[in-house]
């Protein structure tokens, strides 16, 4: 019969229409600002910088190695290295970034910077409500705006943060062990040097008595 299939199609439409009142499978829209979907596992938006402790200036993990700047596909990262050094999380003196800008109007959220970073210092944020009125100023994130505490990272990506913390802890432990070993070696070397010096001092021939002592007559 002509039109039979069209009526069947109408039935499908009707089923979907009424079904959307009952079935979650058929109604997938969400009333956005009031209602929000839960965050998905590995969601990524734009990068941020991680710092340890409370002071963003002191605890920043970034050492301005500029690998992310070089690898960034759209070249949206801009770093200026510092001239002086400050201690990093391992306690070693390190360079730090004087300027660290990310232009998020250029950034394409690809996560390459996170992957190439050898210091676990740049991570992806999940914040997506970033609309501003100022196109240039507010979309250029400076170091101050980018720096977020490690606790924030632990909150948004708990599993990844735990992994990254483990890496940091392992490196710290390694550095400490190395430092300790170095210190011990130094102590040992010092002791050895002392012992050697002492031995040398002991072994050194005592100034021979003058063969012909001057006689005072």
């Amino acid at each position: 019969m002509l039109g039979e299939q069209i009526i069947k199609g109408m039935a499908v439409t009707a089923r979907n229409f009424f079904g959307s009142y009952f079935s979650k499978n058929r109604l997938t829209t969400v009333q956005y600002p009031e209602e929000r979907l839960p965050q998905k596992g590995n969601t990524r938006q734009f990068p941020f910088l991680v710092y340890d402790g409370d002071d963003a200036e002191k605890g920043l993990r970034c050492v301005a190695c500029q690998i992310c700047e070089k690898e960034c596909p759209p070249k949206c990262i801009y770093i200026v290295k510092s001239k002086d050094k400050k201690p990093d999380y391992k306690g070693q003196p390190q360079i730090y970034p004087l300027t660290f800008d990310i232009d998020i109007s250029v950034c394409m959220s690809c996560q390459i910077c996170v992957e190439v970073c050898p210091f676990e210092s740049i991570k992806m944020n999940t914040e997506f409500e970033l609309s501003t009125a100022d196109r240039f100023g507010d979309l250029l994130l400076t170091k101050e705006k980018l720096a977020k505490p490690n606790s924030y990272y632990q909150k948004i990506h708990p599993a990844d943060a735990a992994e990254s913390d483990a890496v940091i802890a392992a490196e710290k432990a390694k550095a400490e062990a190395k430092a300790k070993a170095a210190a011990e070696a130094k102590v040992k070397a010092d002791a050895e040097a002392k012992a050697k010096a002492a031995a040398a001092a002991a072994a050194a021939p005592i100034a021979p008595p003058p063969a012909n002592p001057p006689t005072t007559t």
Binding site: R26, T28, K40, G41, N42, T43, R44, M108, S109, C110, Q111, I112, M124
Partner: peptide, 22 residues
């Protein structure tokens, strides 16, 4: 598109993005 969303949700959960998965 309703069905596509379900697949994009799966992509987002693993790769972090719905369309630009990388």
């Amino acid at each position: 598109f309703r069905e596509r969303e379900k697949i994009l949700d799966l992509f987002e959960e693993v790769s972090g993005a719905r369309m630009m998965c990388n």
